[in-house]
Design a protein around this nucleic acid. Structure first.
Lengths: 262, 262
DNA sequence: CGTTCTATTGACTCGATTCAAACTAAGTGG
DNA sequence: CCACTTAGTTTGAATCGAGTCAATAGAACG
């Protein structure tokens, strides 16, 4: 990794990401621009952190992809796209439970934990936004459990590609249904919990069905509708703006003692 | 469901749960005792909430088990034990993405969202504690992804039972390695993403190996060590007290530009 | 320009599913 | 209290999706 010290530009994709979850005020944006960052460049398969590390800085991903990978079994549990802070949870639970690995070349802004603590105390709204980042991750993890548990491998792979595409769009990186895919078929396999050989066969099947092309480290979605259908992907599940709408309590029949009627 | 209105007793297992994540002060306990609750009783397979519901109250589980279940595929993504608040995330992201279902008979305390907002503003420490609940869930979800993705079905089932046991111990419900199991083998299968038939064969295998008995809606762990071995379970992973220890930054070789040396 | 990843293909194997049927336990109501 | 119903468990046999192994082809990189 090579490092340079910079200040106040790395926040833009993060702002896109946060704004997709809930409004950001001008004051919040102001706070974000003050973000101090050390830029780091990583090569494919570089480990940014290892299991049991206790870093004092968060990684804000600027370019490329990172993943959390269980050290012993090699299972990928989540993939970070630019604008993500994959180790945000380390602010409160400092001991890492897995390794953070670069999928392809990656550029990262290291930001001191103290910065996030500061902006969280300065802005209730940002605090909520950061909490929503964690909840969105939670929703993605649940979705991934459903994917691994209940769907066949073709569906799994298609679903992963759909999810990646949807997230990349949010930060402006999937224009024209085209985005960089510097990761390998084996990486896809590790995420989908299938063998690399089988991953290859599935990608061929997706190509055969003309829903995507994947060459020269670039994926092009040729038929988004079809890919969503194959992947059982509902574009909204990441829950953009699924927040803070005070409503009337919904009284279940059950609560009225009518359980037997259902 | 039948309901009764009560106040100030439902918090004890919740306190055990929170205290397992980080210290609770006397002031925090005081705040918790003021918890207003409507008690609800549910029968097996009752739905407490459905996908897309927007409840104004959280469920604090008092007795039994609840699970989040994807409506279409039936996959269980997590199981709640007494002391858990499975829908805590609905405080910030009110639209539910799955159904909350009772596994066996269950007793729940419904607590208004406003109560949690109040104690969170009253105590920084409790706020952090509630955030840790979410992070612990996050860690469990990741662990479950590894389980579903990378381990065979015997290991998966053993792992689930280990995890349940560990969590029940925290709230005092697995004394003598014995705990209630009102859920069915099909429920276990839905959590482990295997067929009910296969779940049955696996339970028989665990019985044959004398690591547990499961009869009369009760599981007894006869050989905890062996069960952990079969389930690849590391008892500490839930991260009790994995918090807030300010440390020196760990400088990776990568950051010093020594990536090539590794 | 060779070395090293990565992608591709075929053959064989195996864990897990599915289907079907029988059996057991647990209610429920007459 | 027993007959009846329903839910859950157990068993066997056939089938299939996906893994593994092994070998080759192609791309990328120093």
């Amino acid at each position: 990794m090579t490092s340079t010290m910079q200040k106040g530009f790395a926040f833009t994709r993060l702002a896109d990401h946060l704004a997709s979850l809930a409004e950001l005020t001008d004051g919040d944006l102001e706070l974000l621009t003050a973000m101090p960052a050390v830029i780091g460049h990583f090569a494919p398969h570089d480990q940014l952190f290892r299991k049991m590390d206790q870093p004092s800085r968060c990684c804000l991903l600027l370019q490329g992809y990172l993943c959390w990978k269980s050290h012993d079994l090699g299972q990928i549990t989540s993939i970070a796209v630019p604008g993500d802070i994959p180790d945000l949870h380390a602010l409160l639970a400092p001991r890492l439970e897995a390794s953070l690995v670069a999928l392809g070349p990656a550029v990262v802004a290291f930001v001191p934990h103290s910065f996030f603590h500061e902006i969280a105390s300065a802005s209730l709204n940002l605090r909520r936004n950061l909490a929503l980042v964690s909840l969105a991750e939670n929703a993605r993890l649940r979705d991934w459990i459903i994917n691994l548990g209940s769907r066949d491998s073709l569906t799994r792979a298609a679903h992963l590609i759909c999810e990646l595409t949807a997230r990349l769009r949010i930060v402006g990186l999937a224009k024209d249904n085209r985005f960089a895919s510097p990761f390998t078929q084996s990486d896809l396999a590790s995420a989908c919990a299938i063998s690399a050989v089988h991953a290859n066969r599935i990608i061929q099947e997706l190509r055969r069905r003309q829903v995507l092309t994947w060459q020269a480290r670039t994926i092009v979605i040729n038929d988004w509708q079809a890919l969503c259908r194959i992947g059982c992907f509902e574009p909204d599940y990441l829950g953009p703006r699924n927040v803070a709408a005070p409503r009337q309590p919904v009284m279940r029949a059950a609560e009225l003692g009518l359980s037997a009627l259902r």
